[in-house]
Each structure stands twice: as structure tokens, then as C-alpha cells.
Amino acid sequence: MTLAEINPLAKLSDGSFVALDAHMEMEDEAVGRHKKVLTELGVDLSEPREMYEPSDFERNVKAIDAADHRGVIQGKDHGFTGNIGLVIGAGGGSLTLTDAVRNQGGKPANYAEIGGNPSVSKSCGLAKEILQKDGVEKIAVMMSIVSNTRVDIVARGVIKACLELGKDPGETIAIFRIPGAWEDEGYKILDKYGVEYADRSVSMWDAAGTAVAKIQGGGA
């Protein structure tokens, strides 16, 4: 529990107090150990409480993430209305890349996080969901240098997403910039499918710039 606020508080004529209204906040991590009290209060534990109603995209990505235990993917599109599909990670990398795209005039279609070395089917599922959003024709696949998540596994996932949707990976993936673990194996796969990629010598900013130019730059 991180916050308990009682307001207003009423004093009865016999001197006792009654809380007329209360507001409580609990972090998700603590819910497990307070199940009893939450049930008593009538809180539905199967319905995670968000600040807003999740979109179909957000719900679908959550379901793909829950389908297997390898790695984590997240996707949000609340507040995002652009056409640049972002397959990005991890926590800090995603924040940095979203800024880099926006600050170079790009309009992201979504926010995403890949982490913890997800399975091929998970990155494939995330990329497919993004590519099926209205107005999204191309994706940018970018992360900060990875040490646990594998470059070749993500490459397989995003290329497979294109193929399964009947799209050419070389056309659909504007840029692939994930340096790090198993990068040489990943580059072999990307070469085979004609996907433009960048290693660690290309900054996250420049990779994002390439994505903006190729997706929004009027076919440049």
C-alpha cells in the first residue's frame, strides 16, 4: 500500500469518528499479499485497474506476452496516433528511442518494450500486431545494446511477422538496429532477407532518424 487517504472524516455526537470516503493506492507488486482484504472490499482481482480502458492492440499484445514465459513484450498505443510502427526495447532503450523518433519529426504509432530474451513467436506476435494497426505500413526494430535478449532471435521474429502477413521484410522493416548478443548470427539472417541494419557504431538517434526518413520522408 503506497497511499491511504481519508477525506472527509465525520465526528459523530457520541465522539466517535466515521470515514465518509477513502482513497487507497496499492502497487501491483503488493496485491498478492493483500488478496483477503481486497476481496473483502469488493475489488475484482481479475480486472487490473488501469488509468484508462486498454485498446484492442494493448489487450492483444498482453495476451501474446502471457502465452509463453520466455521474455517479456509490452505494447501501448494510448495517445499514439502516428504511422511509424515501433518494435523497440528494453525499458530505458524504449524511452530513448521514442524521444529520438519524435524529436526528429517522427510520429510513432505505438510504444513497445521487448526484454528478457523473448521467444521468436513473441517478437513475431508483437510485430504482427503493430503491422496490423491502421496506417502502419513499416516498422523500425531498434534497441540499446543487448546482453540477454538475442539479436538473431528478434531478427527471426520480426522477419517472420512480415512473411506471415505476406509482406517483404526488406521493404517493411525500415531499419534494424539491435547490437549485442548473437549479432553476427542476426546479421546473416537480415542479409538474407535484404533488411537494412545498423551496428553499435550507429547511434540510437541516427537509427531513429533513418526510420523517420524512410517511413515519413515521402518515399525518400
Binding site: G92, G93, S144, I145
Partner: peptide, 11 residues
């Protein structure tokens, strides 16, 4: 505050 970005920046 980000583990991955520690490596990106150090690189």
C-alpha cells in the same frame, strides 16, 4: 536507472 542504457552509454 536503466540497466541496458548503462551499457549503451558506456559503449
Amino acid at each position: 536507472r536503466s540497466g541496458g542504457m548503462t551499457t549503451e552509454i558506456s559503449s
